[in-house]
Write a protein that binds this DNA or RNA. Sequence first.
RNA 1: GGGCCUCUAGCUCAGUUGGUUAGAGCGUGCCCCUGAUAAGGGCAAGGUCGGUGGUUCAAGUCCACCGAGGCCCA
Length: 924
Amino acid sequence: MKNYAQTLNLPKTDFPMKADLPSREPSILKKWEGLYEKIKEARKGKPLFILHDGPPYANGHIHIGHALNKVLKDVIIKYWLLRGYHIDYVPGWDCHGLPIEQQVEKELKAQKKSKEELGKVVFRRLCKDYAKRFVEVQKEEFIRLGILGDWEKPYLTMDPAYQAQEVRELGRVFKAGLVVRSKKPVYWCIYDKTAEAEAEVEYYEKEDPSIYVKFPLTKEENTYLVIWTTTPWTLPANLGVMVGEDYEYVFLKTDTETYVLAKALLESFEKTTGIKGEVIKEVKGKELVGLEYKSPYGGTNKVYPSEFVELSTGTGLVHMAPGHGREDYIVGLRYGLEPYAPVDEEGRFVEPAPEFIRGKRVFEANPLIIQDLKERALLLWEGKIKHSYPHCWRCKNPVIFRATPQWFISMDIPHEGKTLRERALEEIQKVKWIPPYGKNRIASMVENRPDWCISRQRYWGVPITVFYCKNCGHVVAEEEVFERVAQLIEDSSEGADIWFEKSEKELLPEGYRCPVCGSEDFKKEEDILDVWFDSGSSHAFVLRKRGIQKADLYLEGSDQHRGWFQASLLESVASYKEAPYKAVLTHGFTVDEQGRKMSKSLGNVVSPQEVISKYGADLLRLWVVSEDYTEDIRLGKNILQRLVEDYKKIRNTIRFLLGNLYDFKPSDAIPFERLHHFDRWVLSYLQELLEKVHRHYEAYEFHRVYHLVRNFCSVELSSLYLDVLKDRLYVYAPGSFERRSAQTALFELAKVLITVVAPFLSFTAEEAWEHLRTIDQNLPESVFLYEMPLPSEEKRDEGLLRDYEKLIKIREDAYRAIELLRKEKEVNHPYEAKVYVWGNKELIELLEKYGDYLNYLLSVSKVELSEGGKHRVSSEYFEGLYAGAERVEGKKCPRCWLYYEEKEFEGEVCRRCAKALEERAVQV
RNA sequence: GGGCCUCUAGCUCAGUUGGUUAGAGCGUGCCCCUGAUAAGGGCAAGGUCGGUGGUUCAAGUCCACCGAGGCCCA
């Protein structure tokens, strides 16, 4: 018998089944070089979509969280791009700040050098080099992920132009009168005489005094508040006592005196001190609030409520020194207490501290104070305690909390009728938060946050460019002075380094005199800005300066409600009275397959580099889009394995489409109305799909797009449409209506499928696009220069959709009947079966309508609309409908494999094939 | 310890305003095909909705508490 396979139109394509992404993707990246610029050119004048990039910190390689974040952004940008929008995506980096400073210092230490020796300017240069190095590293890594953006001109917070804009922003906030100078306790090393950041201190065991002290109440005879402390030296700075409002407190009466302390700590107090007494009264903490007592070193102070009081140690009454403790400071701020700290930079007591400790260092003062308390009968008990205590990371000595002057942006000073807090809260209401609870989260943070401390006593950052008049102390913060300095920074290749290089005279406008006293003698501020002010002003440099008022979208992890979203909001509202964004989208964090956070110690970290080298960036991108990012996002081996399967399905579906289009030209296309009804059905279905796809993309619900596409490929296409279509594609002559009609649909399907997945499977879509272009040379060179089709009413036949919905269900019923035959080995391939359908009149009429195509639709050789079949089943879906199946009679056509009666043959093959062979001979 | 959030089959997700036997795809098992072939197809088995207790004629869907986990703060 002849080899009939050669007379069939079997699929042919160079689009390989094996993706081999890790080695193929780099060549696609090569093709994309310059693509961003071409897109900008092509989309000029189109409506703009602005996603403003939050800058990652330029330190280390990217991790999976970075990848998640950037891919999400990329999907959104590419979607709007494929919708015909103009995009403008400028990636950025956060370059200043402590981690880099510490890293550089570590490197210096290895060379036995210190930053003090080198001086600010040289040290800053080293930091700049360090940041630059990692900007390059991360840039390469982001590009490898397939992220589309202006990688030629990203924004760096250390660029002179950026720094200059930031200085101008600071000037605006000063001008609005929102910047104030006041004291705040910071970690302080009394040996290095420097402030330390939280991240810098190291915790070691330290032995300290442990004492119970009594504070006599002013209005109740012989009654004392009992406090416990390990830092007696802070008692001279005592300004209050904190209680937990909801805790229970007792009045403990001994033979001579009455003590107030928390009920929960009574037992441990009695045990430690040996003091015994009788509880004569119990009260809630809130009833103690407002009581006055005599502070051991001066003044009458009060009891305040505080959320920081704990009942694990002490007495539940906490001695409060706002100048020497963070919580003390926060609570103190709330009640208008001074951050009082009579201690100089060497940790020595100064006036107005009591005379007997003046000049002594804080730790030396401890025993003196204890002795003094003892003499004044205020000490109840004295002991020692070993506990974990913060130490200086450089000299390893214990550090202290000490209030020092800092710059703040005030949340509560009214400016043109409203405070920053009020205005920010109003703006929050106008922004669209995705998911919605983000609004609540940031609003409650803004409602409760203290003033924004923007000064840091560090080296690597943007200077706070104000001057102090040496003569009268006036702070020079005029707009023209900020502008002058900004100009100098912008014009210098050294950027903000010039602030530290040049003298006051060089930095100030020529001949500048103090507006208060007329002096010409100034001293510049040495503090630098909080890095959150750097990134918080990115909107000014990246958007406003380039004529864009607001971003359409900010998109970061949910931790940025406290971080970048808030810093940007406050900076923008302070400067421009409005939010810098119209919408804010947040995503969750990556966790492992058990939902646990990724950590080195758990050994469950998955790196993007690892995924890329093993599976390719498209797999990582598919992962991003497959999960609901509003919650925690899981990642692990099994999930990746499933994604590999999903990827193959989508890829092979596209491959099959392309494979059957090798002889098709767009001019062969048949108009929708004249297409075969099955092809009209699939295109109608496609319009429904498109409608949902667009809806979900617009709502940023990518996992719904993913499920839609995945199911479409496997359910409607692979197992139904394409499977049934094979007969028509392979058997009929190349130029026949049957084949051309099918190809018309396949071409449409390919275009839609490729563009729909392009935002996430960018590499694969581009690769497939190359093949599609060999079919239609009019297509643009990149899929990203094309547009994703919109659902079209003209290509949607409602009646067909309704009919097919039923036909598909009947198909399932028939398959259950065939399955029974298969179990008995009566048939193997469905072609060996004959199907009967009967019963329900309405449905039988429907089936008659599609009569001559029914057997193809069911992939069987014959269908009869009457009762019959060896095995019979009742419909799973329809009342009174039945399906039966039996082995078909007749002979298999060696060409099309369907079974026919002897008389339906013409020679070796069936009549249909004979005709096709004839036509084929003419066409080929 | 506080604020915000999550918890539906092995995995990823659906489940309008509370209302019939909780859905899909994948994976799994069994089977078929060998003309998408390191592909394709068919059938089937899997959850009582994190737990407990309420509200209700009726709860995965509302309330309370507990548990596991995440982010932020302390």
